[in-house]
Design a protein around this nucleic acid. Sequence first.
DNA 1: GCCAACGTTGGC
DNA 2: GCCAACGTTGGC
Length: 155
Amino acid sequence: MSTKATTQYWLLKSEPGSYSIDDLKRDRVTTWDGVRNYQARNFMRDDMQSGDLFLFYHSSAEPSGIVGVGKIVSRGLPDLSALDKKSKYYDPKATKDNPIWNTIKVRFIKKFKTIISLEELKKNPKLKKMLVIQRGQRLSVQPVTKEEFETIISL
DNA sequence: GCCAACGTTGGC
DNA sequence: GCCAACGTTGGC
């Protein structure tokens, strides 16, 4: 577990048809559930801190890209949707004693006036190393550097 | 522990 | 809708 006090930066993906930046703007705070990838879970469970900031990324969208900013409110909560047989996130391996999956709570901060499309991200030399533009990168929770975050905020 | 088959993500 | 690139599962 990290004990760093400095703000860390993340990128969270969501399909806007499933949960969009407008949904988060309306809800103000939401539980980010349904993550079913161990690496993504580990980032949320072990590395995120309340107060960290994240870029909200719309995937499988027209166009795909970064649409706003949010803040991590809390972490380390079990993802109860894994126990719910009716949920599309149901995981038969999850139990009450070992829910396997974790969630975080996030808060809306802002929605960009215009989307920063994937194409734009790829064109910016300062963002060359961003995971989200790497071919085949499917992680739905990704770390972002402070420099990358600030570059995007300034666009 | 290997790896083929299968399922999913997500850009295009 | 296609399919490349992954991650996961399960037979051996």
